[in-house]
Nucleic acid binder design. Structure first.
Lengths: 240, 240
DNA sequence: TAGTGGTCTAGACCACAGC
DNA sequence: CTGTGGTCTAGACCACTAA
């Protein structure tokens, strides 16, 4: 009695998708009331728990706010809190024109930090991909990705200046990305990075070390990124 | 049939608490298998959905990892991801000796940014509390908190150098803290901050603007913090 | 009082992993 | 095959909020 889905999507995700589309289309604006759990259950012909699951999960993303005894409302900001997104997806969600320049793309060995972060043997062959990210013709971030060459043997033949790395992995290699752990600190631009990002030397930059895991909990990508503080705003939400 | 709890705690939180205590006590170590949903349901005499809720929520905190078809495992210790904690609580969780020096504590007006972030009228009376945080006798962070004076009239008579601000609000003012939105960027230490934090001028620092909300969604505290990058490691987790 | 979200039941079928 | 987590049902009672 639960096989109503034309596609393979779970019911709660279909409900989320409908709500998200209404918000994107402007039919639901920040502060507006979203249909209650009971209404959603009736409308989508699902049980209360399923409608509830859809709303609870949207709340953790910061899309809606729920208040006991009152209702569920569209949240104010447009940022997707704590949401793992590729550079391509981030730019798309802000409607910015983005571009990428590949500075380095080779298979190398003896990358101690990368192999350690990816839980690989120290001498494993590693794909190193260094990309300069720009938005609106201004350099924005320098990101260096490391992946296992054994896991993605033909990755470097993909036109990664145009193709999204996330999309390639998910489409061509059937990798399901699950979550990412990030370490964030501040550092000063060294001469090379200052030059690439068009900022003065010693300029404060955000440095993010990101390990991206598959849904099976396996480390897939290690990304070391340097971000211009004046162009990048990292927004997160913490819960008590 | 659901009123088994001796105390008022929901069943799923009791289950979480039991698991957390086993991990803290060392009976469960990273990588160990946690009892399955079905086992937990039997042990605690709850339904499957309740046991499941307990585990799913622990996973979002990074306490456990769940793998379909395999089981639930204790996660590597790391940090409490995306968990809203006071400075006092953070230090305690790392077993560090912490200290706080109050640099400024007065009621003021015309704090434009603070009133805006707290959604208060621009000329509201605001409690401004500037504190230098240290650990192991080294300055660590400079945090400035802003709160509504109307909401917390007697806050400044509390010995905040010893008492935790979070604890005071939750105990004395019955405020339930719910979540916090944070904006993070990098900035250079100005002369005063450099002096206070004992770093060179222009040193890169992490700057965090944090708005803490109650469970009812009302902005309660605005915190502007500067953190020494070499002493502070911000760790977050993103989900896809 | 009526409506909302928060918790919970006692099951069910599915997809997946390991043997 | 068994056991796991992932999704789902068709309800229930509670605490809370507002009219």
């Amino acid at each position: 009695m639960q096989r109503k889905s034309r596609n393979g999507l779970p019911a709660y995700q279909r409900i989320q998708s409908v709500i998200r589309k209404r918000i994107d289309a402007g039919h639901l604006r920040p502060g507006d009331v979203v249909a209650s759990e009971r209404d959603l259950a009736k409308i989508h012909e699902v049980s209360l728990m399923t409608a509830r699951h859809a709303l609870a999960s949207l709340e953790r993303e910061g899309v809606v706010e729920r208040r006991r005894g009152i209702g569920t409302f569209v949240a104010a900001p447009k940022i997707h809190f704590n949401k793992l997104m590729s550079y391509t997806e981030q730019m798309a969600s802000r409607s910015l024109t983005a571009s990428t320049k590949i500075l380095f793309a080779k298979v190398i060995r003896h990358e101690q930090e990368a192999t350690a972060r990816l839980s690989l043997p120290p001498t494993s062959a590693i794909i190193k991909l260094e990309r300069l990210r720009s938005a609106v013709d201004e350099p924005f971030a320098l990101e260096t990705c490391y992946l296992s060459h054994a896991q993605f043997p033909d990755l470097l033949s993909v036109p990664l200046a145009r193709e999204s790395l996330f999309a390639t992995l998910e489409r061509d290699y059937k990798v399901e990305l699950g979550y990412a752990d990030e370490e964030i600190d501040a550092t000063a631009a060294d001469p090379r990075i200052a030059d690439l990002l068009a900022v003065p030397r010693r300029e404060p930059l955000l440095r993010i070390r990101q390990v991206i895991y598959s849904t099976q909990g396996k480390a897939v990508i290690y990304v070391l990124g340097f971000y211009r503080s004046d162009r990048h705003n990292l927004v997160i939400r913490r819960f008590r």
